[in-house]
């Protein structure tokens, strides 16, 4: 189409290309998701690998998750006491640490840390398998690669993210507590009073709902980019980066979504 090469049309063209790429990605994602759901039937293929993935995604991620949340708890307590001066009672430090850890920072920071750790490793592993034809090899050996590779990872993510995040929240709150009584001039009963005062059982449910959705996003996005890797080692690198960037963004978007939908 020689008549359509005017330079002024270039921006429109790039918008169109971006839109098409997005639509294609959504389509491929949906296709992958549908395939994974169908692959659930092949229990014999994925069930033996759940444990390994639960270990990889859950247990092996604990150190980073706990590290992140511990320091978050400490900083929260220090900053809360710094901010809350004047007429606000001290026990609000406990309230602030508890509420923010449970509702927001515990799930989101852990989710982001795991997006870097779990999402990247899934994308890199599946990407390497894709470019070295290992995924094709699986197919030729009559394995559904979705059942063999994607289902155990996503399932382990759904199961283990809440587990890791629950522990991370606990460590964060305990770290805030210890900080309050050791570094701040504050008693344990006050911290606990503040912690309990505005606590609502729903907070925990909310955190768990978030965690499950983050688990789905991180493992699903990692699998998606790994699965659609093209172009050798460079392609694997690109897939890994994209997986981390996209799942990070999706975590934040989902975070806002749940806050709007459930609170």
């Amino acid at each position: 189409m020689p008549g359509l090469t005017h330079p002024a049309l270039a921006p429109i063209e790039s918008v169109g290309r971006a839109t098409l790429a997005l639509v294609r990605a959504i389509g491929q994602g949906g296709y992958l998701a549908a395939g994974a759901v169908r692959a659930l039937r092949s229990t014999d293929i994925w069930a033996p690998h759940i444990l390994t993935q639960m270990y990889q995604i859950g247990v092996a991620s604990l150190p980073i998750a706990l590290f992140v949340s511990m320091f978050t708890g400490i900083v929260l307590a220090l900053q809360a006491s710094y901010t809350l001066t004047g007429g606000v009672p001290e026990y609000f430090v406990g309230t602030l640490v508890g509420k923010t850890m449970i509702l927001e920072l515990g799930p989101v920071l852990t989710g982001l840390a795991l997006a870097g750790r779990v999402g990247a490793s899934i994308a890199a592993e599946l990407g390497t398998m894709r470019v070295t034809e290992q995924i094709d090899a699986l197919e030729t050996l009559a394995y559904d690669p979705l059942a063999y590779l994607v289902v155990p990872r996503v399932a382990a993510g759904l199961l283990m993210f809440p587990v890791v995040i629950a522990l991370a929240i606990t460590i964060g709150v305990v770290a805030g507590w210890v900080t309050s009584i050791s570094l701040l001039d504050m008693g344990s009963p006050q911290f606990v009073k503040g912690l309990k005062m505005f606590f609502d059982g729903f907070d925990v449910t909310f955190a768990m709902i978030k965690s499950v959705s983050f688990g789905l996003v991180v493992t699903g996005v990692g699998s998606f980019f790994g699965f659609h890797t093209v172009g050798g080692a460079e392609g694997v690198g690109r897939a890994t980066t994209r997986a981390v960037v996209v799942s990070t963004m999706l975590i934040l978007v989902l975070d806002a979504f749940w806050a709007a939908a459930l609170l």
Binding site: T132, Q134, D136, A137, L138, E139, T140, L141, A142, Y143
Partner: peptide, 27 residues
């Protein structure tokens, strides 16, 4: 169909997380 067809890949495409024995046993 795939049970009846063996495919030898250009770079072997062995699963590198498994031993050779496990690789061969996969099918």
């Amino acid at each position: 169909l795939r049970r009846n067809v063996g495919y030898v890949f250009q770079f072997a495409a062995l699963f590198d997380s498994m031993t050779i024995g496990e690789n061969v046993a996969m099918g």
